[in-house]
Design a protein around this nucleic acid. Structure first.
Lengths: 343, 343
DNA sequence: AATCAATCCCAAAGCGCTTTGGATAAACCA
DNA sequence: TGGTTTATCCAAAGCGCTTTGGGATTGATT
């Protein structure tokens, strides 16, 4: 059923039917009701394509998610983020289109999306230090929002981020407060902006306490479980092993725990662990009592809100770039305890 | 830059330019080359919308992923599946559109996608027992493929699945071979078809060995880490506790491990654990030596292949429904050992 | 009675592409 | 030479919608 058929069926013109359905005032209440009933009866839905062609909009948002070429891995937070964003889109009648793409040729994808006119805006995932995508998108004139921030980017742009620096400062400070002096960092890839900020927070806390960061117990890689495990095994064999570990992801933290236990030690006694927790739906940080002492910020909420921001920016292209900074929640779990006394 | 502008620029008609670009024979090699160069120079990309309107195709595939209303959770395998499928789409010039939707009103979404003409086909995720989506899609005439199978569905339909039954039979049998007699099952939600098949495999192995399935040590829920943990704590307090656990997901298995250790026991000695492993990129089952004895089947490969199947089905609507059954790989890890001798 | 402003509706153009049904020119055949 | 292919290209229609620029009809106003 298309507009033409529907309007013939009603004995009205396409114009009137279109207007009735889109809430224009030039149509009587009576007619509008009649049209709406018929539309419901025939289950009429305007073709997105045709509507898009006519209006110049596409009613779709693009998510370009980088596939790490190194590990061929897609960020596990992605599912939850998308679920949040998808909620917003569904409510506002937008579609969501996904492109999974090797992290090198993202740029190409953006200009493709723009010139093919297939989306009204995009969400930028996994921003890196000095990420040139911001400039590119601004040049293209394609509306966008960033999940995270881009250190080194001069021009204003819209973003939503957790305060990674203060979160990691807090985590580290907490360990220091428990008496820990040797604290390792297991971080994400530090080309990623968030990882960079997290390290800065970690280092700031150490320096605040008069401790000096030791690069031999600071590691950075894709945040897999295995990375957490291997790194933990490794740093625990250090001549001066850490008694505290600051970790960047719950998944890696699970590996950290395994590493500690495989070394015959006990988490929360011999080694204390703190981590950031993205509050993924399938991977809660424990039930009543948290497993890990952690900073927590829901990535799904981020998706929801960021989508909202983008839709607003599209609706009002002249508005100034909105920015949102969230503070992570701090929870104390069973993974931390006083630093073991030296023997 | 659109077709009109490009063709004016070349001094050719839109027809010719369109044909040159789409590989039709009615255009001389010379002209074609000239057109292609100009297209490249101006970075011309045909508008997807317009192309779709003209051809009746949309060059997009829909993925409708159910959001469990109960736990508001999106299946963690989803990211990897999508990454695989996305590869195929990118190669074939298709877009991927996502709808995240409460599992009740999926049906509505499908008919919406159909009538809005926004996709050429859909991938059905998370099929349930007697899932009525198959019939619905067939009635709608919307091409589809299913990731998994639907027990109780009479008519043929295209699917790709792992042999869940034989995998779980093998896992269980392996434990039995090690001398285990009390074996618990920690399964996914058994309305899901895959979970149902897995239980069937588990039970078959027990019965083969003359053991009788005990419902008090068979649990089924959303496969979170927490579920694995809680259930393990629980079954270990059973008057006649299991020495073996068959688990449906690596994420739950991590919880199982935590539960075993929190109970002061050792995995692989006091309690043996086997699991299915979807080979997620951020959650490998260990490095050199697997953590868990497991059946493994890459969900990303499934995505890649299923997308291919769908594209073929779209290209040739008259072909018979293709079906693909994969056998999972079996790997032995450190989570299993001989059943502890009774004292 | 004539005028005016609402009110309600419509025909037709246009969005950017594909595709049908020729037209033209060059090449071939008898 | 004239007629017939063949190779190239083009004009125009059409995909399903929105939107511009009116045209009737009605009721109120003078």
């Amino acid at each position: 059923m298309n507009l033409k058929e529907l309007s013939q069926n009603l004995g009205l013109s396409q114009t009137t039917v279109s207007r009735a359905l889109n809430g224009y005032p030039e149509v009587s209440a009576k007619t509008r009701q009649r049209v709406e009933q018929a539309a419901a009866k025939f289950n009429y839905r305007p073709s997105n394509r045709a509507k898009g062609l006519a209006t110049g909009k596409s009613y779709a948002i693009g998510h370009v998610i980088p596939l790490s070429t190194k590990h061929e891995m897609v960020n596990p937070i992605f599912g939850d983020f998308i679920a949040g964003a998808g909620e917003t889109y569904a409510r506002e009648g937008y579609e969501m289109t996904l492109s999974i793409v090797d992290d090198q040729d993202e740029a190409q994808i953006y200009s493709g999306l723009k010139s093919k006119n297939s989306v009204d805006g995009v969400v930028v995932h996994g921003p890196r230090m000095n990420d040139n995508r911001i400039t590119l998108l601004q040049e293209l004139g394609l509306p966008f929002v960033v999940h995270g921030r881009v250190s080194g980017c001069e021009t204003p742009y819209p973003w939503l981020d957790v305060n990674n620096r203060s979160a990691f400062r807090q985590l580290t400070k907490y360990l220091i407060g428990l008496g820990h002096r040797r604290i390792a960092l297991i971080n994400g890839l530090e080309v990623m902006d968030f990882a960079h900020r997290r390290r800065a927070g970690y280092e700031a806390a150490l320096i605040d306490a008069g401790l000096s960061p030791d690069p031999t117990i600071m590691r950075s890689d894709e945040m897999t479980e295995e990375f957490g495990y291997e790194t933990t095994r490794d740093v625990l064999q250090h001549p001066d092993p850490p008694t505290g570990i600051v970790c960047s992801s719950l998944i890696s933290a699970i590996g950290v725990r395994r590493g500690i236990e495989d070394a015959g030690l006990k988490m929360g006694q011999d080694v204390s662990v703190v981590t950031h927790d993205d509050a993924l739906s399938y991977l809660k940080n424990g039930g009543k009592t948290p497993i890990f002492t952690a900073t927590r910020s829901s990535v799904r909420d981020a998706g929801r809100h960021l989508a909202q921001m983008l839709l607003q920016a599209i609706a009002d292209p002249d508005q100034l770039p909105q920015t949102t900074l969230w503070d992570a929640e701090f929870v104390i779990g069973g993974s931390t305890g006083p630093a073991p006394s030296k023997d």
